[in-house]
């Protein structure tokens, strides 16, 4: 198995560090490959597509058999769903996701830097501690959290939700960022050392630009998890600062015949993240490929 001990070329120019040399397998795939790949892709996407389509059906058409892929579209469901307020939910979710992600990065970047490049002796234990904060089932801490929130006046507030989402995404952010920092070639640090750069300058001028794709990927992951979070939002924030997942379940009512309305509200709820994910997928893959494993 002595196939490759090819040393990776050392990247001298920090700005061009981002995986230029790597890249997808350039081999052109066969026609069969193409067909299979498309088939699998469409199959995996089908439930989502069907949800989108159902949102444009009438309630009766939504449950009609055989299931229709071609039909007279209607915006009736979107009108019903939007006749309440959608924007406050959207705004709450956007603020909770973005602010918590900003806080996550603020805490995680320095921590990951320290763990990767200035590792304390017990760095593994510290990393494990962060991951272990994700072990507690949300329902298990909900009553303590509720009581703490009540005492701190955080129930039903945006602050409370942001605090929790920050804690929720901190472990994975540190984990990811640490591995990106470790990818930084040591000679870059050496060079910086020679220059006598201080930590702040080292960070902002050299390290962060180098791992920018990794940072982008971390930000996306953090936003995705925060946007999609349901349980804390329902339990602690619903009265006052309800987020998009709560908007969505409002259409599972006792009224009956709810599929199309549900599909419409789901579509609205998932749309921002799906669009973000579609636009950002290259960054996601690129970012994760920077290191990801150590």
């Amino acid at each position: 198995m002595a196939v490759a001990t090819t040393a990776r070329p050392v990247v001298r120019q920090p700005a061009r560090f981002a995986i230029r040399r790597r890249g997808a397998n350039k081999e052109q795939a066969s026609a069969l490959w193409t067909v299979v790949a498309w088939g699998v892709g469409l199959l995996a996407f089908f439930p989502v597509l069907y949800m989108f389509l159902t949102a444009f059906k009438t309630e009766t058409a939504a449950v009609s058999l055989p299931p229709r892929l071609i039909f007279q579209p209607t915006l009736e469901q979107f009108r019903t769903v939007l006749s309440g307020d959608f924007l406050p939910f959207f705004r709450n979710s956007a603020i909770a996701s973005l602010v918590s992600t900003a806080l996550v990065m603020l805490l995680a970047v320095p921590a990951a830097y320290a763990l990767a490049l200035r590792p304390p002796k017990k760095w593994k234990d510290i990393l494990f501690f962060f991951i272990s904060t994700r072990f507690m089932p949300a329902a298990g801490v909900i009553v303590p959290l509720y009581i703490i929130f009540r005492e701190a006046g955080l129930l039903g507030t945006m602050r409370g939700l942001i605090i929790l989402y920050t804690a929720m995404n901190l472990p994975i952010a540190i984990w990811m960022l640490r591995s990106f920092f470790e990818e930084v070639p040591k000679d870059v640090l050496d060079a910086a050392e020679v220059d006598g750069a201080n930590v702040m300058r080292l960070m902002t001028e050299i390290l962060l630009p180098m791992i920018a794709p990794g940072i982008a990927a971390t930000i996306f992951i953090s936003i995705i998890f925060a946007w999609n979070e349901f349980f804390f939002a329902v339990s602690l924030a619903a009265a006052g600062t309800a987020t998009v997942p709560i908007f969505m379940v409002k259409f599972v009512t006792s009224e009956g015949l709810f599929w199309a309305k549900l599909a419409a509200s789901s579509t609205l709820a998932v749309l921002p993240i799906v669009l973000l994910g579609w636009v950002a997928q290259r960054q996601l893959v690129r970012g994760l490929s920077m290191g990801a494993v150590k």
Binding site: T34, A37, W38, A44, F45, V48, N228, G277
Partner: peptide, 23 residues
């Protein structure tokens, strides 16, 4: 591997992860 529409297929494959679990 490279094939026509690879970007689209990757997009389709990623989407389930982006969908809100409740939805």
């Amino acid at each position: 591997r490279k094939f026509p529409g690879r970007g689209i297929v990757r997009t389709l494959l990623i989407t389930p992860f982006l969908i809100m679990p409740v939805a």
